[in-house]
Design a protein around this nucleic acid. Structure first.
Lengths: 186, 186, 186, 186
DNA sequence: GATGAATGAGATTTCATTCAT
DNA sequence: TATGAATGAAATCTCATTCAT
């Protein structure tokens, strides 16, 4: 028998994400995905039960990626200012560098039929290991986790997505970092 | 007979956004919208050139609604604290009370083929008339408009959308208000 | 609006039945039916919810036909012998003259997913109005209805379907009539 | 390792007829059969040239089974009444005990593309060895073979298949036996 | 012999849109 | 204006079969 081709599955995922970026979840038909991945439409059903499950599976995978990316950049010897700067800049540069995955995940979060398959809050555990440590050491104020997620990540995401409307996105980002340092540090 | 026509168009819009809430942009086919609105599919083409235009038109209409809703709640004699509390609570309660429109607009913002039709920043003019006034009176710190939008509205939207994951969403909201008052007021 | 075209629905039914006769339920795809009926596959879904329902609906219609055909040939002044001869010959000639419908109905009866949609026994009411009358008048022996259906119609159906294997099908039929007259008449 | 192979083929046959009972010939896809038999789809093609041939082969095998089952129950010292009772009861209990095979064979008989592969009449040789003997001994009336098949087996098959519609199927069967004894015995 | 991967062909069904009234 | 009928195009998915090991 032929051996399952992981590279093939990777091509399918890539094709799906890049099509969704260009044409939305609507526009990413199984046929188009297959064509772009260089496989037969039927092959996709070897790897995934159906389209819905394919979306959900890839959504889950990529929804967890940005936070592990961030997690890898942090270390305990940072100052509080550095921590916040690092989180915001990291989130921003992840969004820029991984535009496709980022937009894909964003569309998934806003799609009612997919919302159930990922709980946005569950993804941040890795980062909160560090933040909780900073809170115990009285460097970061002891706000609740959801509030911290909300003010740390929602604004930077907003700025990343609207960066084309701004004269100087980098300046906006720097300002945001200051605002959050003020807000979150003792 | 003008009234009857408008009512029919209203039913079409309602059907569309309520279907999109339940089943996503994917699930809202012209046929389903027509059925739910109690009209013939052909009738929809009396009011809109095609589906794409219908989405864009309704998107534009509803994207502006929440800010005028907010605008109507503000008045110059408020204190700074009151202003921020009012904006956050207003945004939150708008999201709850208008769940359908809210989800519809959210999905539209994240859909690449619709993004072009509304610039998110354009919608906030009404609110910024008030905020700028408060900034001139040195009540609200003079951060740039995009930064203010980002920290004011993105977090509350995030909390509204994830409210089902929280034990006490109201407490999260109150905490968020405090954080933003700290951050934005002198 | 265009007016629903009953002739079109008739063509769809005819195409379905004739395809099933030639190629079995398997072979009668919606696309083939549409082509043979001279309509678009999508048109079929204007008239029927889906393929299963189409089969069931047409099955129901045609399962009832042969018995009304028979019912129309009977009258109370017949002798018992004549009644039985008439029923057997009628059933046989219906099978020959309506080969397509007959084979179609037969295949439906034997298909587990369709069996539920028609109860074979329910179809014989019209004929039993007459038979019961003959039983009351002590011309036909008072066996139970199911037994009578079983011995009257199952054998003639069997002979009709296997007629190509017989040297002289007509002779078989005549013999069968005699056997049943012996059996059922006083 | 012969035994193991035969067992595998047996599992394939069982899976096929049990799927056909549940879902009809349509529903018994090679993939499903393989899954239910616990083998790979490719394995099926080790044992059979293709699906059509598999159906025909198994059809032939099982179409002959009920009559050998019956044949084994008969012996020359029976009375005529006993012979008929034994045939009817045997046919009925075969249908109940071998529901799957029975439904499978029935569907095959009614499928135009399979009809060619078995001549229903050919199957009864074993039984007719006995019946002819009884006819020579002037116990059973000398009707032609096809007529006898028709009245003996078609009605009992009908009753077996419709047994769920009857209040007391066993009573129907007993009545049928009486009717046929009257008809066929001197 | 046995198999899971792979697929072209085709299945059923839905889509956005237009037609004819 | 309003509509149900009609449809070409395309959607998702399944099929029987073959390939490569």
């Amino acid at each position: 028998m032929r051996i399952k081709d992981n590279e093939k599955q990777e091509r399918i995922k890539d094709a799906m994400i890049s099509l969704i970026l260009k044409e939305g979840i609507n526009g990413a038909s199984v046929a188009k995905i297959a064509k772009q991945a260089g496989v037969s439409p039927a092959t996709i059903y070897v790897y995934y039960e159906n389209k819905e499950e394919m979306l959900a599976e890839v959504f889950n995978e990529y929804a967890r990626k940005p936070v592990s990316y961030l997690g890898g950049m942090l270390y305990p010897s940072m100052s509080g200012s550095e921590l916040i700067e690092c989180l915001i800049k990291g989130a921003y540069s992840y969004a820029l560098e991984n535009e496709k995955e980022f937009s894909f995940v964003d569309q998934c979060y806003s799609c009612p039929t997919l919302q159930e398959s990922v709980k946005e809050n569950d993804c941040y555990n890795e980062v909160f290991d560090v933040i909780h440590d900073f809170q115990k050491r009285r460097i970061i104020r002891s706000y609740s986790d959801p509030s911290i997620i909300a003010v740390l990540f929602a604004p930077v995401k907003f700025i990343a997505m609207n960066r084309n409307s701004y004269a100087d996105p980098q300046a906006e980002l720097d300002e945001l970092i200051k605002m959050l340092q003020d807000m979150l540090l003792y």
